[in-house]
Amino acid sequence: MVGPGAVIQGSPPRRRSPVTNLWYGILPAVILMAVFFVTPIGYTIGLSFTHADHAGLTLSNYAAFFSNDRFTDALARSILMASAAVIIASGFAYPLAWFLTYAVRPGRRLLLLFVLIAPFWTSFTIRAFSWQLVLSDSGVIAFILGRILGEPIALGFLYTMSASVFGLTLFGIMLITLTIFSVMVTIDPRLLEANRDLGGSEWQGFVEIVLPLSFPGWVIGAVLTFIICVGDYAVPTLLGGGFKPVLAQLMLSTLKGTYDLPMAATFAAVLMVVVLASALPLALVRRQVRLQG
């Protein structure tokens, strides 16, 4: 490509003034968001303050929600399930991110990262279902254990909350490893060299340098994992079963089953509050790290 200087010799280019600044490229995205995201969610929250039978604003849906053990249990279950997935996944994700950053040649890093995350680009539903084949009482693990023990064995694991947590934890490991890694890899290696030169152990290097500097990556991964898990519908249905429903399951059965739309909207509003509250830590780290994909 010919350098611009060579072509326009003699007549210095006048840069366009900021008036032609193409800020309006954001308009389609912003309008889309306004019409299909903000308005529907705003409408839903408004609907939660109405009642199916009479006009006017009311808190009766919220009273009904918080006085019904079935509903509050489902809320607690959703939060517990998502929290457990985040905590367990974090325990795996930190060593994995450390491994990818410091124990693997840079050329091989992307390949390993790819191997780890690629399955998560495919259908959530199919992955959840495939675990049924492994975990059910007639599944692969029960079969192998049965052969070893010489008698049929009932695992009793599928259709429990533990099975839901298990499925969501695998997702969390992938996502949190990714977000920690993407921050960890930017840490200046000279900091660790300095630590070693000064007699610090590898463990000290991790606790005092890598951990604090990669913390924002963990926060982003943990928050996103929590949000996705707390509102998930497929895994709690396919692995957790329906006897002890989570909030998302009650929301859908209310919407498609009873047609009590204000009540369904109330479930959504409660979930929205949980999501907003769990997103607060993001504000703490936003200044420290550029949002990245």
Binding site: V30, F37, P40, Y43, G231, Y233, A248, L271, L291
Partner: peptide, 27 residues
């Protein structure tokens, strides 16, 4: 603010996007 706004659907469970669109557009 615009960047965060456009990225917001990332940080919202799909079920909320789904139920919001359904309730609003049916209404």
């Amino acid at each position: 603010a615009v960047t965060l706004f456009v990225l917001a659907p990332f940080a919202v469970p799909l079920i909320l996007i789904g139920i919001g669109l359904r309730l609003y557009f049916v209404s």
